[in-house]
Simulated scan of single mutants.
Amino acid sequence: MHSLTFVGIAGSLRQASRNKGLLRCCASHLPQGVRMEIADLSALPFYNEDIEKPQSARDLIAQVTAADALVLAATEYNYSMSPALKNALDWLSREPNLAPLNGKPACLLGAGGGMGTARSQYHARQVCVYLNLRLLNKPELFSNAFGQDFDQQGNVQSEALTKQVAQLMQALADWTRLLERD
Rank of each mutant, 00 (worst) to 15 (best):
S3R: 11
L4V: 05
T5M: 06
G8L: 09
A10L: 06
A10F: 09
S12A: 09
L13D: 01
K20R: 15
R24L: 08
R24C: 08
C25V: 10
C26Y: 05
C26K: 03
Q32I: 14
G33K: 12
R35V: 15
M36N: 05
M36G: 02
M36P: 00
I38W: 04
D40Y: 09
S42E: 12
D50S: 13
I51T: 14
E52T: 11
K53C: 15
P54V: 07
Q55R: 10
S56Q: 07
A57Y: 04
L60Y: 04
L60I: 04
T65D: 13
A66W: 05
D68G: 08
V71P: 10
L72W: 05
L72C: 08
A73K: 12
A73I: 05
E76V: 03
Y77F: 12
Y77K: 04
Y77M: 07
N78W: 13
S80P: 07
P83G: 15
L85R: 02
K86Q: 12
A88P: 00
L89V: 02
D90T: 13
N97H: 15
P100G: 07
L101R: 01
L101K: 00
G103D: 03
K104H: 05
K104I: 02
P105I: 12
P105Q: 05
L108G: 09
G114Q: 13
G114S: 14
M115Q: 08
S120W: 00
H123S: 06
V127G: 03
C128T: 03
V129Q: 13
Y130K: 01
L133V: 00
L136M: 05
P139C: 10
L141A: 03
L141R: 08
S143R: 03
A145L: 11
A145N: 03
Q148N: 13
F150Y: 08
D151W: 07
Q153K: 08
S158P: 02
E159G: 13
L168N: 00
A173L: 10
D174R: 08
D174P: 06
D174L: 14
W175M: 11
L179W: 09
